[in-house]
Design a protein around this nucleic acid. Structure first.
Lengths: 345, 345
DNA sequence: CTGAAAGCGCTAACAT
DNA sequence: ATGTTAGCGCTTTCAG
């Protein structure tokens, strides 16, 4: 591996001059010398040693991407179709900006702080931590960071959150359901916090506009236990089959649940959307494989990746930020899982 | 940020002594001093500056994880459910070993070589490159690397491949189909190279054992174009409905195709497994959501991640390797998408 | 336009 | 048991 020193010696110039050429400060070097140096750099295939750069500079050109992902062996929780898309987007964007991606997989905030200091990272992109974690991070982290899909009680300051317009997604999907004649809608999620709650609020807002009110706590919550969840869905199926249900459409907070429900409902002989309309959220790849094609809310993961990277770059470079809590747009994908009740009148 | 020098000064000792304590070389330091130093280290929350370490040492404690992933906007090719699982496994294992993960997303081998030199990485974990790429890498990379799911014409040397027992998966699933009375089986994949080919060879071997032979090239190949692929599946559906098909079971090389086919077949009014048996490969999370539950071949992604990391560590530490082309075991997951033909006799 | 020199934080060979 | 010293590769200030 050839070093700056080496090419300097070969050409009988000083390391400074070579360094200047490398950094494009060509005003400080004569054109002929620039050419000569560039030729040798090229020929020798010069590659900077980042350790040296890191030590001599203050910043590191490293962006830390941190996932708070607890591994539980034997379950498929980790099989998230979005992660690969997000990763690819992040990786490419970060590289484009001339930075490097350091990946961390931990649920321990202190680990994050520690490694961020060790490597003197330029900024961090954080996924899946909880509110309390962010408080610690804001306090102890001296570099900018961007969170993804966070929801916070207090005003965000000291960092930026890039999220999805969950409220809007819930709202617009509900409007669509209303248009299709559905007035009795239930929203089914695995919890009522963060984005699940925002989506639910969107549902409530849309329903509120047409004078329908409901208690948020009355909406069913899906168990995190696979078996129990299946049972819950079977119970719903039975109610629908019996006609003892009081809703004509179910809005699942995530496609994966919508798809699972569709299967279970069909097991019970239910016809979708004739007997029950179903919609989801996310537009994962199998949403358009499943039958009937699932009507759902789509978000643009690649866009989210790019926005996150652009944002952290702006923060690193001390630029003015447009906002510190962004909500990226969503799109209602109308497919085949909703019945138009109006038509039957 | 406190440095070694600082704590040395505070205690009136030399940096070397502090460094020795940090590295657990306690034989070289008096027990009292060790305690004192450790106390200050703790109190000051000492964190090593990796730039310094990197520069002073030869190796870097960095493992590069490189995905060859071309981003094509607008398609969902990137939505790979395994990646997140693989990432989580890799991230955790690498961290456990005291190493750091540097992530790269590129299809350009030279980028890989370049960055590996820049950071003086200890080893690389490579995903999704082609045979030709590996040849270049073997030649130019001076550090150990491990590939995932690679298939090579020539003997592997200079690196290690961690794959899946694709042949065995194809073989055992076919044996199962034979047990269920299926003799006319087709294998459907999107190409006939790498693991797809190995699975196909497994099919051929199992069939060969009972005296059934077929020409590998006669097996249908799925188009990479979504629309065309759909058409192909519809054509299959029609043939099955007409009874003009000459097979009773279809072995899809990937669950995603199996699931798509199931939907399309059911659109055409086909009943699975009564009219046609279907099996897949991978056991992605929605394989057990879809109806009928998909019988498929499961591989253990987390295990693969751990094996890759252990392997690269062994290589880095110059240990003897058990093999340079590993095939991790698979498991046939018997569910509901195969009909037992014997029963009908 | 070019160069000399110091220094970033850490390690390790070599004293003592 | 502890210290001295040089040096890893690069940037940067200051001087020529």
């Amino acid at each position: 591996m050839v070093r700056i020193k080496d090419v300097a010696k070969e050409l009988g110039v000083s390391p400074t001059t070579v360094s200047n050429v490398i950094h494009g400060k060509k005003k400080r070097v004569s054109p002929e010398m620039v050419k000569k140096i560039e030729a040798v750099l090229e020929r020798e295939n010069y590659v900077p040693n980042m350790a040296g750069v890191l030590l001599a500079q203050s910043s590191s050109k490293i962006i830390a991407v941190v996932f708070c992902n607890k591994i539980k062996y034997g379950d498929k929780m980790l099989q998230d179709p979005f992660i690969s898309e997000m990763m690819a987007g992040l990786g490419e964007s970060i590289r484009e900006k001339g930075y490097f991606t350091m990946l961390h997989n931990t649920s321990d905030v202190n680990e994050v702080i520690r490694m961020s200091a060790m490597w003197n990272v330029a900024g961090l992109l954080l996924f899946g931590f909880r509110k309390e974690d962010y408080d610690i991070l804001r306090e102890k982290l001296k570099v900018p960071f961007v969170t993804c899909d966070g929801y916070f009680d207090t005003d965000i300051n000291g960092f930026v959150n890039v999220g999805t317009d969950d409220f809007g997604g819930g709202y617009r999907m509900t409007k669509y359901l209303l248009e299709m004649g559905h007035k009795n809608i239930i929203y089914v999620a695995d919890d009522h916090i963060g984005c699940e709650m925002a989506r639910l609020k969107g549902v409530k807002a849309a329903l509120g506009e047409v004078g329908i009110d409901f208690d948020i706590d009355s909406m069913p919550i899906l168990s995190s236990d696979e078996k129990e969840r299946q049972q819950q869905m079977e119970d719903m199926a039975k109610a629908i089959a019996d006609g003892t249900n009081d809703y004509s459409a179910i809005f699942f907070a995530a496609d994966k649940y919508a798809v699972q429900a569709m299967s279970i409902f069909q097991d019970e002989g239910l016809s979708i959307p004739d007997q029950i309309s179903i919609v989801g959220f996310d537009d994962v790849n199998y949403a358009s494989v499943v039958r009937p094609y699932l009507t759902t809310v789509r978000q643009d993961i690649l866009l989210k990746a790019v926005v996150m990277v652009n944002t952290i770059m702006n923060m690193i470079n001390g630029h003015e930020l447009p906002a510190n809590d962004m909500k990226l747009p969503v799109e209602v994908m109308i497919r085949k899982s909703v019945r138009d009740i109006n038509k039957d009148r």
